[in-house]
Write a protein that binds this DNA or RNA. Structure first.
Lengths: 121, 121
DNA sequence: CAGAATCCACCGAGATACTG
DNA sequence: CAGTATCTCGGTGGATTCTG
């Protein structure tokens, strides 16, 4: 599994232009995206989510856990490690999420146009 | 086109249990649902959305309009009427929305269980 | 009828600093 | 390493009252 890139969410995410939201809070969708390829450690998640403070990231992870979408596993040896992973329930969300993302990609220009027309009005 | 029922969204909507959200604000998804079958007047929308104050409903409608998802048309005769309608862009969202709603319906019990397990912990 | 104006409470989110 | 503890601030959503 490849490491997550630091610029994974630069520029566009999260944008208010996107009319779809997943999870309870602002960063939930990005966390889910990070976990698509497999389990990740807290510090691994912090790389692409470097604009999120640890407090807020923890909050988001707790919410996802409370909703049964991710699981949290703690190891003490050889060093302290906490691993987050999509549950089967969380993984089953990926289908509708992909449908929504495809729609957004297809209509991004229209969304942009609508917002820009509003500004110049 | 049938009138919208007053109990259309009673009981469950909007629930924090649902991990999908459409539009920018709390009520956007319900407005879209109301417009699925065709154009509706402001006062028609107020029937199923009776728990939403007119100010907040107007806000939500304005947001949807700014995002190009609905259109607003005003008539003065014979009486004042303002009609809201899904744009083609808004209508094209219905596909992914249905996918998300189907997922939620399929996994509602699991979502409920996860939240309840959290409470008793 | 279709809102606008005003005021207010809450909560999500961020900054900063600290810890088992 | 993986978080907590405070504090703060702004924005969303709601109650109430008023209007072209």
């Amino acid at each position: 599994m490849e490491p997550l890139r630091a610029d994974m969410f630069d520029e566009i995410c999260p944008s208010t232009l996107n009319p779809f939201r997943f999870g309870r809070d602002k960063w939930a969708a990005l966390v889910i995206a990070c976990l698509e390829d497999g389990p990740r450690r807290f510090s691994e998640l912090r790389v692409p989510l470097h604009r999120v403070t640890p407090k807020v990231l923890t909050q988001s992870l707790r919410h996802l856990e409370q909703d049964g979408l991710i699981s949290r596993t703690e190891y003490a040896v050889p060093v302290r490690r906490v691993v987050y992973e999509l549950t089967p329930l969380g993984r089953s969300m990926l289908g509708p999420i992909r449908a929504a993302c495809a729609w957004t990609a297809d209509h991004w220009d229209e969304l942009l146009d609508a917002r820009e027309a509003e500004i110049t009005r």
